[in-house]
Design a binder for these strands. Structure first.
Lengths: 129, 129
DNA sequence: TGCACATCTGCGCAGAAATCAAGATGTCAC
DNA sequence: GTGACATCTTGATTTCTGCGCAGATGTGCA
């Protein structure tokens, strides 16, 4: 059988074409892939990791307290919250002139826990980063 | 680690200073935070998500097959693999003139699964209204 | 209505990272 | 050793994104 493998001509020599086709067929579709990347990308910033971790601990915080907790200006915090909100990572609740933020998704908690385990167990390279 | 509530004048008005201090004390230290962000950052790219997902399915693949699987040039794939390797996300094994890549960490598999659930269920954490 | 407060946004700048093209390195076969 | 092959690296260019500042928006109170 002739494998489709569209490939714009980058690599014509394959070691195991069948396997490539098989794996390729089992990959999540492009849309899911991009969304996954976006979720990770949003969390791929120390400032936002701190924000999310703070919300993880506090449950709910207003912007000014959140800014103080993570040690950033309020404008800065607000900007990051916007990014997090665009990705549905956090949700906001308005109460008067204050806005309270909390995590919007249960998966985020698991993601953070896993990442924390990953970096704390860290294969023994022990060094001051 | 960071100083306890620097308050360099950014936000002098706190709604709940005690809570801020409490949450702040329970946050992971700065080093862990930065590593977590780096892990997420590495995965925050569609191309790398595809690569990792492919390795997740295949177990082990050489660069050329991997490039074909994810639909990129080999040089491009190699570049991303370098980034992934720098973060200990993938490992490589040399066999002749070929180099075989596979995942280096068990947590990555869980991270990817969670992210996939997240984007497929579309933040469906169920329960809480 | 006017002011004070909490939060959000727009703009310019600087640093980081992705992309592309081309060549360098290392390995096998003869 | 020479050539073919698989992979890796380098450099220049472009794009993205976080930061800092100033101002805008929206809300509550007198």
């Amino acid at each position: 059988m002739s494998e489709p493998i569209p490939l714009d001509g980058c690599s014509v020599r394959l070691v195991d074409p069948e396997r490539v086709a098989s794996v390729r067929a089992r990959l999540p579709d492009g849309d899911a892939t991009e969304r996954m990347a976006r979720v990770f990308h949003v969390l791929g910033e120390p400032a936002r990791v701190r924000i999310v971790t703070a919300l993880l601990e506090a449950g709910e915080l207003c912007v000014c307290d959140l800014a103080a907790t993570v040690g950033m200006t309020e404008a800065q915090t607000s900007q990051h919250l916007r990014v997090l909100r665009a990705e549905r990572t956090v949700r906001n609740r308005r109460d008067g002139r204050m806005v309270w933020y909390s995590l919007d998704d249960a998966h985020v908690r698991l993601l953070m826990d896993l990442a924390l385990q990953h970096v704390t167990h860290e294969h023994g390279d022990g060094g001051s980063a």
